[in-house]
Structures are given as C-alpha cells and as structure tokens.
C-alpha cells in the first residue's frame, strides 16, 4: 500500500479506526472522516495513524449531507494529493423490532446513513481517483442473511451489495474495483453495550459481556463470540491492495461462520 491514499468513513472508533491503522501500517496515507461530535476520538485515530509514520488528515462531515461531505473529502484529498482507495465504513445499527412496528424516522435513518451515505461517500471519493483504484463498501452479514427485528438495517445492507454490483460494472473499465465486506459480530461499541447484551440475554438480569459472548458464540461455526476489528481490517487491506487486483463485484464475509451455520 506504500504511497496509497485512502478515505475511511466512520474513522473515529470501532472498525473505522482499525482500518485506518491497518492500512497505514501497510504504507497508506489516510483521510479519516467522521461526525463533528466525534472530533476527540477522530483525533485519536489520527494520532494512531501518525504513530505508524504515515500522514493522516482528519475531516468531519455527516455522510448524509452531500455538500458538506464533498467539501470535507475535497479538502482532505487535496491535502493528500488525491485518493486511490475508498473505504465506506460508517454505519448505524439498532434493533427496533418487527418491521411493521418500526417508525418511519428509524427506517429512514438506516437507509440515509447505511445506504445513501455509502453512495455519497463513493461519489465524493472516486472523484479524486486519478486512475484505477479500489472501493470497499462495508456491508454486514445482514447484507446476505437478514436480521429479524432489524429489517431497516437488513434492507440497507442488502442494498449496499446491489450498489456495489452496479458500481463494479460501471467502473471496471476504469480499473476501479468495487467489493463489499460483510462482518458478523465484531467486538466494537456497536454491539459491546448493555442494550445489546440485554437483547441477547433476555432472561438474565444485567447481563455481562461474558453472558453475551456465550450467546454470540453459539451463532458462529468457529468457537469464538465475535471477530476483532482487525480481522475485518485485514480483509479491507486485502481488497485495497494489489493482492486482489482481479477481484471485483464480490462479497467477502468475515463472520466466523455466522451466515453458514446450520
């Protein structure tokens, strides 16, 4: 990845920070983007990237805001002298309940962030590709096998696969590859929180992380409750690098066997 310039959204924490650091360790310079109110954490990501000896530009924007996102990406990309890789990682997840009970605002927010925000990110980022490049859309196992009581999330993450398949067709002739990554349960604040623990362990009072881990492990083929952010980052790095130069339009699942468990 030496000399590559990558845009990562959702870079303030969780998987996003891990992608930034992993790509930087492989030699990439990073445009790390997240919401303004994550500025403190985003700066910590930037410090972690710089600690590897690479450049990091931190910018803030809401990926739902086309104009603000474009301005932020333009500023960052101009500082780095262009972009070669886009990692559309930012997303939101909740489990509101059966689909007909979801309120329209909750449905809309999932599509706006997880789907339209991803498209916005691609548009803003690819505009700075000089030649070929790699676009990685972070979907979810919910983009392959739905999560009941999260139809808004399942719909958005399936839709991201459709977007990637069309983009791969449209951008292939420019040597731009487009793939999706599908993490299962990942050890990030998105699932490591008391709300998710309670949902996973409805019969336990104040369930702990260990209680939740036992439930999650039972859903995987491998004897682990979750993958770590770096496991997803390693898949992102592979798809970002020349090691995957002829891989496009595909779905790479990183889920400890979650989607294949019978």
């Amino acid at each position: 990845m030496a000399g590559s310039r990558v845009l990562v959204t959702g870079a303030a924490g969780g998987m996003g920070r891990s992608h930034c650091v992993t790509l930087a360790q492989a030699g990439a310079d990073v445009l790390a983007l997240d919401l303004e109110d994550t500025r403190h954490e985003l700066d910590a990501t930037a410090e972690a990237v710089r600690a590897t000896g690479r450049t990091c530009v931190a910018e803030t924007a809401d990926i739902r805001d086309t104009a603000a996102l474009r301005a932020a990406v333009d500023r960052g990309a101009n500082t780095l002298g262009g972009l070669d890789v886009v990692v559309a990682n930012a997303g939101v997840y909740d489990v509101p309940g059966p689909s007909w009970t979801i309120d329209p605002q909750t449905w809309r927010r999932s599509l706006d962030v997880n789907l339209t925000g991803t498209w916005n990110t691609v548009r803003a980022g690819v505009a700075h590709f000089a030649g070929g490049g790699s676009v990685i859309l972070v979907s979810s196992t919910a983009g392959i096998k739905a999560i009941p009581s999260a139809s808004h999330y399942s719909a958005a993450k399936h839709a991201v696969v459709g977007l990637a398949r069309t983009l791969a067709n449209e951008l292939g002739s420019r040597s731009i590859r487009v793939n999706t990554v599908h993490p299962g349960s990942v050890h990030t604040p998105m699932i490591i929180n008391s709300r998710v623990f309670s949902r996973l362990c409805p019969d336990v009072d104040n369930p702990t992380e260990a209680d939740a881990a036992a439930v999650l492990a039972s859903r995987n083929l491998l004897p682990v409750p979750w993958v770590d952010p770096v496991d997803v980052s390693n898949a992102v790095l592979f798809l970002a690098s020349e090691d995957s130069r002829y891989i496009t339009g595909t779905q790479l699942v990183v889920d400890a066997g979650l989607t294949q468990k019978v």
């Binding site: 919910a142 096998k145 993450k157 399936h158």
Partner: peptide
C-alpha cells in the same frame, strides 16, 4: 436488492 433484505427479515 434492499427489498430482498426486507423480505428475508
């Protein structure tokens, strides 16, 4: 694609 996700959920 999105409606397939909805259908599956």
């Amino acid at each position: 694609h999105g409606v397939v996700g909805l259908m599956r959920a």
